[in-house]
Write a protein that binds this DNA or RNA. Sequence first.
RNA 1: UGUCCGAUGGUGUAACGGUAGCACACAGCCCUUUGGAGGCUAUUGUCCUGGUUCGAAUCCAGGUCGGACAGCCA
Length: 567
Amino acid sequence: MSSTPETTPSLDFIRQIIVEDNKTGKHGGKVVTRFPPEPNGYLHIGHAKSICLNFGIARQFEGVCHLRFDDTNPTREDVEYVDSIQEDVHWLGFDWADKKFYASDYFEKLYQFAVELIRVGKAYVCDQTADEFKANRGTPTVPGKDSPYRNRSVDENLDLFGRMRKGEFADGSRTLRAKIDMASPNIHMRDPAIYRIRKAEHHRTGNQWCIYPMYDFAHCLSDSIEGITHSICTLEFEVHRPLYDWILDALKTPCHPQQIEFARLNLGYTVMSKRKLLQMVTEGNVSDWNDPRMPTIAGMRRRGYPPEAIRAFCEKVGVAKRENIIDMALLEYCVREELNKSAHRAMAVLHPIKVVLTNYPENQAEEFDAINNPEDPSAGTRKIPFSREIYIDQDDFKEVPPKKYFRLVPGGEVRLRYAYIIKCEKVVKNDQGEVVELHCTIDPGSKAGGPTSGRKIKGTIHWVSAPQAISAEVRLYDRMFTVEQPDADAEGRDFKTFLNPQSLVTLANCKLEPSLANAAPGTRFQFERLGYFNVDPVDSKPGKPVFNRTVTLRDAWAKIEQATHQS
RNA sequence: UGUCCGAUGGUGUAACGGUAGCACACAGCCCUUUGGAGGCUAUUGUCCUGGUUCGAAUCCAGGUCGGACAGCCA
């Protein structure tokens, strides 16, 4: 097949490997990838990169991508996570068809592989305690010492391993170890444990097993069993690759997948470790895994990020082996770009101030046509009611305007979007001197099609008719988390994390145009000039929507920040 | 005095011995009864030192810096 250079984007290094493999027929021209999460937490934006990569490559090369739960540690895993992972992968727009697997499906096969490894003299049962194990492992610069149990006979190992399975030994009393080289410069090759005793209930196999395979043993063999061609994982597994290959070679498996590592995604000022995210949840810093401030897929979905935007983001960040910290602005750009195309516009007032149009008859009512989406004419129009009393945003009126302020000022004029030009005649204040109401007059001829509709007015603001307005709660979310640089604590490598105290501001009395009353949960809108919002799928009730600020419009940051901090 | 991996503007990513390009961010300008969208312009980069070559981001050597690895986690 020939491809035109103009339409062929440059391939990342993984795709280049696959193109090369296809050329040489290394895997028979097939491409089988897998996304292998451990079900011990919710998926986050970092996983999204892996998902887009693995499913994307499969799609691009007309292969398949498996979903495999790497559930080999029963003490940390839960069906809640199994369910959420599937939901999130689907929501992102990928499908594994009937290729859903569990490492736990292979427990019997893996056991037989382990027996085989013992038979060929490449594994042994070790009676060392965890502490002894550790003490004899050495360090990166000091070689380890052989276990005294290293040269047990095959028969004895077989017997002991069988009894491990039967549950005759206590947790931690023995392990099965691969017999490699305690002096290897690569610590993972120093007779790594491949089975441990863990008398714990597994979320799928129950109490059927009391020994569980370690990652290094289970992963390569699961890949091999499934006929994976390219086992794509993150950089920290690079030093595991010799072990991955050793196990498959030792067992002479017919399928030997190729492990390829890439740099995981890091977002600036964002915590991405499952451990810390779990901590956020359990300590109540956030409402749950799907809190809109969380960098989880579920959190972003609830916040209003479209799956298309996340996919575009993963595409844009690229794939390489270099450590990276992506600017959050790129993610937000991708969200805006998608939402600009797809989100309907709506009028909303977050900090309402009442405006009485003194020359507009009390009992008069009108409707104006508003465009739903200028990007998409097929989205049509809707009717917006208009009356003598309306709300505008406090921010759209300034008693003492800064320079270049084109919105409403005392004695000044401004256009109400889709409606009339109004003039501010009087400012009503309370005892504290706060502006509580404005009295304005309309130019009756200035509505669309009117004789003075063409008048040049600098500012145009949005508004909501007071009698028909619906009141709603609007939540403004700031950047999700902040991360401190590592301090010199005991570990020397941990991060201190904390929630930005400004990360959530709730505005309880926002006035929205009536069409929003029945907006379906999850629907995304652009509140003109204020940014993109979505109807919270969790807390919204019929006729009583709650909106989350998904992301602000690009130029609106400073303004919104200011407004947020004032309130 | 360990093994492995990496190093291109502020951020991320291309260029596979032949003009250092793209995107985001930033700055400025234009347009708009605002679609806070769009358009235009500009600044900023090959870790260092040598070598090979007509020519090096690319190949070689040595250094520097950064990351991963010492769970019976994945």
